[in-house]
Nucleic acid binder design. Structure first.
Lengths: 189, 189
DNA sequence: TCAAAACGTTGCGGTAGAGCAATGTTTGGC
DNA sequence: GCCAAACATTGCTCTACCGCAACGTTTTGA
């Protein structure tokens, strides 16, 4: 059960099995159905989740009621409403399983306890924050610098997994266009 | 010279003068003229900068040649091309002083050395990353969820300092519209 | 100090993408 | 295995914002 998580830590920090065993019991297994939510808008996020199997989606809903997907966490990645987790304020993001999934959940309190006491977890958190920041920045660059069709082409080339695994509706919300527009873009490819 | 930086550390970590003195000599004073660049697109970023006086702007240029401002670092804040600093790859961002400024510069190498050896600097870096991430996320929410005029109204209400201190051209690039559009939006306020 | 350059404004026309409606296609719960 | 509900496609129209051109105003540097 902890094998993928150990592998994740091992790759990033070179931690040994013994040290890992010292804290991995803070992570609890949770199974969750397709389309079920881990967190709704307005709730304060009190967990971090490592995806053993399946996929999480982090998304928001804007003023016009349009869903906007921020991030997908596939197997072997952490996923949470990071902004709410950090700020401890009501979340503007939803966290949802878009496939039947198996997660390793750690409470906020335990997570930050480990960040402050276990150097390897401190490093992992630093790494999560760095990658989350870089991803956001590239996202902004994309939204401000590329047309919707260029974004779709990029996705086709570099993230075919996303296209084959997810519904058009979800892909549209990730590209930041309506399903109507995505359908038209696909037609003119 | 180190007073604003000490105050910054003091507020965030409660550090004492003695510990601070142990590492503050890694920060070197640099004076820079208005509109001068600290980093150009394509260069690898090897520094972090604390703003004692003046203001830094981090921006990119998209495919159409349009400038897009990501972030302003006013007095008492750190500013750098964080993505390039982390990845150690050529930057897609420019770092520019938009006023005559006084900076405290630390090299990448010394900065990460301190992050790894001084708990208070580790915490400061964590805080910088957390805030940078949250700012990016709110930016994306804004770009995808609000019209340009709503963004301008928000700026008027919550960031009047930006509006009064900076040129329209720079403000337009921060709002993600052309100077033409900004001018028209101001007319219809 | 004064001319050149950069900046700001506004009229006009163009374009990417939104949104409704109507229709065809998948999907999943019983 | 079937039917309702969700999803996908496409024609038509609409809107926010872009981008040029032309002109007035401010800034700057020799």
């Amino acid at each position: 059960m902890y094998k993928p998580l150990y592998q994740y830590f091992q790759e990033k920090t070179g931690i040994d099995q013994n040290s890992f065993s010292g804290f991995c019991h803070y992570f609890k297994l949770k199974k969750i159905k397709k389309n079920e939510h881990l967190l709704m808008e307005g709730e304060v996020c009190t967990f971090n989740a490592f995806v053993n199997k399946g996929c999480l989606r982090i998304y928001t809903i804007n003023n016009e009621g349009q869903e906007l997907t921020r991030y997908f966490a596939f197997e072997g990645k952490f996923g949470t409403a990071l902004t709410s987790l950090i700020e401890q304020k009501p979340s503007f993001e939803f966290v949802q399983a878009i496939e039947k999934s198996e997660l390793l959940i750690i409470s906020r309190q335990n997570f930050y306890h480990l960040v402050d006491t276990v150097p390897q977890v401190n490093f992992i958190y630093r790494n999560i924050l760095e990658m989350a920041y870089i991803t956001s920045q590239k996202r902004i660059y994309d939204l401000q610098g590329q047309s919707a069709i260029e974004r779709l082409k990029w996705l086709l080339e570099y993230q075919p997994k996303i296209l084959s695994r997810l519904s058009s509706k979800v892909i549209a919300s990730y590209l930041g266009v309506t399903p109507y527009t995505l359908s038209r873009l696909k037609a003119e490819l």
